[in-house]
Design a protein around this nucleic acid. Structure first.
Lengths: 187, 187
DNA sequence: TCCCTCATGTAACACGTTACATGATTTC
DNA sequence: GAAATCATGTAACGTGTTACATGAGGGA
């Protein structure tokens, strides 16, 4: 009975917002509200979060002993901080990439099904994809400039690495989309 | 009362396995069991499916009139085929990329949190990523050779385009991972 | 007959979204 | 005092996974 208390944390490895929240709390304590803004600002590019889910995950994390309330402020504000168990869990997750969820991409699925629409519609769709990727590149480059100027030390080293991934991904995507357009034209 | 019948299909746009199944049935009729094998073979790289979900989605699709049972075989086998409404829905989805779910990547989240482990562990993790990407490239290239040799016509044009995306993605990832390793070494 | 493949389904759970609900504190 | 912001929560639903369950047909 009640096998659901502690083992839970080792069972479900396909875990996500839980980890993202844990990761933010590993850097500094904060309330749900604080975390929400951190998600919007820094982590949204990697892991968007909704308010609703965040608060319930924080409660679950606290129930599981991975975080704890470090202070109570006005308006019922609960400031959380990570525990040793939480840090261990975070490290375990980072070191175990084996069991990530399978790769799923609505974008690629759409490409797969592009034969269902006319060639001109397909070309248009791909051109939009390429344009969107160009826009993303511009946005991310601006973001990088801001981050670099506001953080002279390299405290955000890995954040910038992730950003670089985004830049390369979008460059690849734009190039690829245009190559498919060329292939359609050459058909 | 009962607003849940037909409008449903226009409301939920973040739809996925539903569309993938519809897309396969658009190419040829088949049973749930047939589709399952098609998912494993051709579509697993783009949209993996579990047996359980597939069968219930097929029932929902049939309830919604997007597919219909075209024949009943031995062992209760139900062969489905797409309807006109189904084709229309499929085309609508392909033409409306705007409301795809937000981009989420456990892989990138892990990079973001790589500061939690030691530099040597981080380097090792990135090396594994690069190696895995190399392996994926080999696998996809083999797959492409098979597809090209078995399909002299270009009936799988968009399938090959999706495959090319996968190749470029993995090449990008390997290159990126190695560049981050270099950056760690240079720190 | 026994086993493998074909063939479909149910139940419980995990994760994420949207919408709704509530109230305290600060600021103008 | 009104409004914006801070701060947390619940409920219902959609989608995906795992495990379990069932049975028919074909070949050794």
């Amino acid at each position: 009975m009640s096998q659901l208390t502690c083992q839970e944390w080792s069972y479900h490895r396909r875990v996500s917002l839980r980890i993202a929240a844990l990761g933010l709390l590993a850097q500094q304590p904060g309330s749900g509200y604080d975390l929400l803004r951190l998600f919007e600002q820094s982590m949204a590019n990697v892991w968007p979060a909704t308010q609703s889910q965040l608060y319930s995950e924080l409660n679950k994390l606290a129930d599981g002993g991975l975080i704890e309330v470090s202070a109570i402020g006005p308006r019922g504000r609960k400031e959380y901080r990570i525990t040793d168990a939480g840090r261990a869990e975070l490290r375990r997750w980072v070191n175990n990439p084996a069991d990530d969820p399978p790769f799923r991409s609505p974008r690629l699925l759409r490409i797969f099904l592009l034969g269902e629409v006319s060639p001109s519609q397909a070309r248009e769709h791909l051109a939009e994809l390429a344009g969107r990727a160009d826009g993303e590149i511009a946005r991310l480059e601006k973001l990088r400039t801001e981050i670099v100027s506001e953080n002279p030390d390299d405290g955000l080293f890995y954040g910038l690495a992730a950003l670089d991934y985004g830049l390369r991904l979008n460059a690849m995507e734009a190039e690829w989309a245009r190559s498919v357009i060329d292939a359609i034209d050459a058909r």
